[in-house]
Computed example of a mutant assay.
Amino acid sequence: MKSSARVFSRATRAIRSIPCPVISPAPSGLPWWTSTAASGSTSMVCARKQLPPSSPKSRNCALKNNFMKLLNFFCALLLLSAGCKPGSSAPTAVASTNQTYSARGVVQAIPADHRHATIQHEKIPGYMAAMTMDFSVRDPNALNALSPGDEITFNLVVSADDDWIENIRRTGSSTAPAPPTWRVVAAELKPGDELPDCEFTSENGRVVHFSDFRGRAVAFTFFFTSCPLPEFCPRMNRNFSEARTLLLADTNALANWEFLSISFDPDFDRPEILTGYGNFYRGGDTNRWLFAVASTNTLAVLAPKVDLMFWRENGSITHNLRTVVLDVNGKIPRQFDGNDWTPQQLADAIREAAKTSAP
């Protein structure tokens, strides 16, 4: 199912990118859903858990009915395939090989631990648009000789559930201005603070609010369906899937809890898209896990409160990662920044939040 989710992501990106209904055949050897518009495309992709390079913290046209039918048909085929293995309520691992993409860019920042580097990269053909990202490295020594402003070439390696860069080589230096920094416009909430009520459109088309979950502990995270990197939105959803499995299997755990996955791409992630995407991770079982999408007005209020940062760059979406736990009174006992937290940590946080006494 991990591989299926990645294919779904690519399918939505391919369909999203079509500026007109004229489709050219897919290259030989590629599946039919990777067809692209003859006039070109613009993808929307997400960036790593860090912020813009100097931050103090770290579609184009209406979707045509025939493309929706195409996507729904593709979803049905994948769900049918998933259903051939009975008793599975969560995605199952599928063996796949790593894919490697050649890239070039300019180093914007390297943290002291040398575990990742923020790079303003050019378009990576066949994978993503030009943007600024924070890439992981497997070997910290690979960054020892690099400094901000260095021009580099590198390989981006993508597996079913991870991604990193390697073969990094300095080719020169750049005097080009850095991408714009993020401006903090509102204070982030602290543990114990109450989260303001916000409304979303759920996958079933209904309007829901945080207040609808009063009396239940809630864990919510952010994503968008065409996010291509396994370490980002797909990892958030895999972690939610595994944490839900842990909680449902715990006969001593309280039952007053809910998971909520919130898309920040209202232009594309409409209810029918959310349902198909969500079922890749839920295994068709919607028990205590809802997918929804936030409007731009909701995001303007909510994002600063939890330090969610996202912006559009060269036609793409760059964002960090935030996962928040609410207790039964709508207050924040725990927030997970980035993607280093585990499903067990989230399950433990939900158990504690569910025990909170109502006023």
Results as ranks from 00 to 15, higher is better:
Phe213Trp: 15
Phe213Ile: 04
Phe280Leu: 15
Ala243Lys: 00
Phe210Gln: 12
Asp250Leu: 01
Leu254Ala: 15
Arg235Asn: 13
Ala253Lys: 01
Asn279Pro: 04
Phe291Ile: 04
Pro266Ala: 12
Val218Asp: 01
Tyr277Cys: 12
Thr298Val: 11
Pro234Glu: 03
Trp257Tyr: 15
Thr251Phe: 02
Ala219Glu: 10
Ser211Thr: 13
Phe232Arg: 02
Asp212Trp: 12
Ser211Phe: 03
Leu299Trp: 03
Phe223Val: 02
Trp257Ala: 01
Asn297Ser: 14
Gly283Glu: 07
Thr225Trp: 08
Thr275Lys: 15
Ala253Tyr: 01
Phe224Gln: 08
Phe291Ser: 10
Glu199Gln: 14
Ala300Ile: 07
Asn239Ser: 13
Glu242Ala: 14
Phe222Val: 13
Leu247Pro: 00
Phe259Ile: 04
Trp289Pro: 01
Trp289Ile: 08
Glu272Gly: 01
Phe222His: 14
Tyr277Ile: 13
Glu258Arg: 07
Ser241Ile: 04
Asn297Phe: 06
Ser261Asp: 07
Asn204Gly: 13
Thr225Ser: 12
Asp269Ile: 05
Phe280Gly: 07
Pro234Lys: 09
Leu290Gln: 15
Ile273Trp: 03
Glu231Asp: 14
Tyr277Leu: 10
Ile262Gly: 09
Asp250Arg: 00
Leu248Val: 01
Arg214Asn: 13
Ser263Cys: 10
Ser202Gln: 06
Ala249Val: 00
Tyr281Ala: 08
Phe213Leu: 05
Phe223Arg: 02
Asn204Gln: 12
Glu199Trp: 10
Thr286Gln: 11
Glu242His: 07
Leu229Glu: 07
